[in-house]
Design a protein around this nucleic acid. Structure first.
Lengths: 223, 223
DNA sequence: GAACTGTATCAACAGTGTGTTGAGTGGGTC
DNA sequence: GACCCACTCAACACACTGTTGATACAGTTC
């Protein structure tokens, strides 16, 4: 069923591989201050216009001290994204069960809505994550894992529906799943950031769901 | 019918708003050398790892001299992309006529194939363009125009097919068009750059076309 | 309570990139 | 031969990033 990666925070300990060099003492506040400053600044301007110095100043420390807590600006953003993705993942858990309980239409709606909801409140962070993929391999890997999880879930749904006979045959389930998940990624991202052209926030789900349902359950008999 | 923007090269003159400061004399070679160096380096490594000095050296000039020809590294890439987009646009011209002549299935295939073909040979340039959108407003505007052109064309097709009665009613044509065009952008980009997960190069078109046909001509009657 | 250990801090440095200034050079042209 | 004007670049001024080395300071430990 492909669970979303757990953002390597082991339950009780706080030591994040991306965070501080070692330690466990007080300076937790500083680390949190840096993360909060970053989240806040990212809603104001893109990552490329935020310097390490901005983050340090915002957290009330000097630039070298910043490097005591994080190895780079990217690492801060990756930490934030790890958490966001973990949040989104926990809401995601149950595509299959939602589908089984509520039927395809309502189930899909619930699943996509949860997902969209997790990101909607922090467009700046989403944008930063997307930007990071251009230059940062770790960001690419992280997102690839997330995508892979969704694709696996959707593939399972399509195969299940086909085997039940409720969905017609067609292109391989996994390939359909990839394209559909990519569509959602792009469309929801564009909406979140208000690109032009993009779908309105209150229209995204209706439109995407219609395409998903037709792609999965429909057949085309063009005249 | 929304033609793709013509990359402001007026017919005979060579003066590009993004290029050299004024002039028209000899140094055309240098300008070309810079563009060629950029295209070549972009197939080797991402834009973020190419410096103005690399471009200057590649063209056999010093860094300050580079600035005589282009105001920035971004401007070089934008010039390259302008041209690429103009090329792709000229092949694009005839979605509607292709559809009318060959029918929806073959027509769509031809249209999407032309498009994909225009970019396939220069993935590095495509990647650079995509990366640029993160930091450069002009790049965003340029791409928005291109998207808008395609969306307008596809909207017209959907509306035409619905009015003929060959496509069923559904979500507004323009909104369907936006989502479908965004899906293609994302899926073809991922394939071009070999992201994971992505569709194989020889599968992209089959999968996208099935989704397009079902989304436009199909109805979903989930069981 | 002196010596030790490890967290936490930053001034100063080194390096790499960008974009600008100002001083040329050399080929037309009147 | 004086004057443009396209063209060129050494040297500069910044803005970043990441590192070094010295230091403060809070607990142990004996």
């Amino acid at each position: 069923m492909a669970t979303v990666p757990q953002a390597e925070t082991s339950p009780a300990s706080a030591s994040n591989s991306r965070g501080r060099r070692n330690t466990r003492a007080s300076g937790d506040d500083r680390e949190r201050a840096i993360l909060e400053t970053a989240e806040q600044l990212l809603e104001e301007r893109p990552l490329s216009e935020i310097s390490v110095d901005d983050l340090a100043k915002g957290a009330g420390i000097s630039r070298p001290t910043f490097y005591f807590y994080f190895p780079s600006k990217d690492a801060v953003v990756l930490t934030i994204i790890d958490r966001l993705v973990a949040d989104a993942g926990s809401g995601q858990e149950a595509i299959l069960t939602a589908l089984a309980e509520a039927g395809p239409q309502a189930g899909l709606r619930t699943a996509l809505q949860n997902l969209y909801g997790a990101f909607r409140s922090r467009p700046g962070v989403v944008r930063a994550g997307s930007d990071l993929r251009a230059t940062n391999q770790e960001a690419r890997d992280l997102w690839a894992q997330v995508m892979e999880g969704w694709v696996a879930d959707v593939t399972a749904v399509i195969e299940f529906e086909r085997s039940r006979g409720t969905a017609p045959a067609g292109q391989p389930a996994r390939e359909m799943a990839i394209a559909l998940v990519q569509m959602n990624e792009r469309a929801q991202y564009a909406t979140l950031l208000g690109e032009e052209p993009s779908l309105e926030g209150d229209r995204v789900l209706d439109v995407l769901i219609e395409i998903w349902l037709r792609a999965i359950y429909g057949t085309a008999e063009p005249g």
